[in-house]
Design a protein around this nucleic acid. Sequence first.
DNA 1: ACCAAAATGCACTAGTGTTGCAGCGATAAT
DNA 2: ATTATCGCTGCAACACTAGTGCATTTTGGT
Lengths: 138, 138
Amino acid sequence: MSEIEQQLAEFNIRPTAMRMLVYQFIEQQQKAVSLSVIEDYFDKADRTTLYRTIKTFEEKAVVHQIDDGTGVAKYALCEPGCGCDIGLDLHLHFHCTHCNDTTCLTDHKIPKIKVPAGYIAENINLVVKGICDLCNRT
Amino acid sequence: MSEIEQQLAEFNIRPTAMRMLVYQFIEQQQKAVSLSVIEDYFDKADRTTLYRTIKTFEEKAVVHQIDDGTGVAKYALCEPGCGCDIGLDLHLHFHCTHCNDTTCLTDHKIPKIKVPAGYIAENINLVVKGICDLCNRT
DNA sequence: ACCAAAATGCACTAGTGTTGCAGCGATAAT
DNA sequence: ATTATCGCTGCAACACTAGTGCATTTTGGT
Ligand SMILES: [Mn+2]
Ligand SMILES: [Mn+2]
Ligand SMILES: [Zn+2]
Ligand SMILES: [Zn+2]
């Protein structure tokens, strides 16, 4: 039983070949990936399967969706304590307007936000846009 | 010379009939509006014209775009000092998961966010999701 | 081996955002 | 007043993402 097979089992996901490959691919990335990026990488695989694989991962809190404002959803692995399993994605995300990459700033938590009286805050999406350190160096 | 005509003139926007109507419509709303909402309201008007009208408004900082995570862009009038003219939209936005409305919380400014060394923050998008006061009351 | 449930592949649909181009109207120069 | 110019409008078309229905294959359990 492989490493990845075990990971998926812990999330109650049946470890099919495709799922293991997709999991591995996302795991290797240093940045959040969009569905089209995954499609390009697995060019032999069917779009729908990849789509539903991601949806399954999302439901089971293997990955979390990131909306960086570019109009396409991106995904990254959840980390222990990331809060995705209880519907809270507490860390902030950085979108580089230069290289277009989006990264999780896992250890930069979202500060306490005040909302007006009568409003109930349930979740917060915070995306910082700018230049990432890689683009900054060059 | 009408009120609205004057407003547009201040932004260096030629006050066509359509533009004045769209401006008036957005002004009347208490919430951010999507393009499709505008299309539904002006059902006789052409989609493209409305699209380009909004784009013009956005360029001239008459309105600012709001990405509330629903996948469709919404727009609301800029207010004096909202920072949209210099590319900074500093206040936070609230998206109600019950009524699906998105509102500007104009006087709730975004707190100072720290980013890792090497990163340059240029703009911040902060959307709070939850229940708005109207939905909360009922 | 067999069965039921789950996963996959294919085709197709919907919605948003965007562009090219031709016509029309307001504006400005002659 | 006539004309040339420019910007706005309307129509058509396209790109892309997201999502669904259904038939077929694969999987895991008995
Ligand atoms: Mn993240
Ligand atoms: Mn706003
Ligand atoms: Zn970058
Ligand atoms: Zn509401």
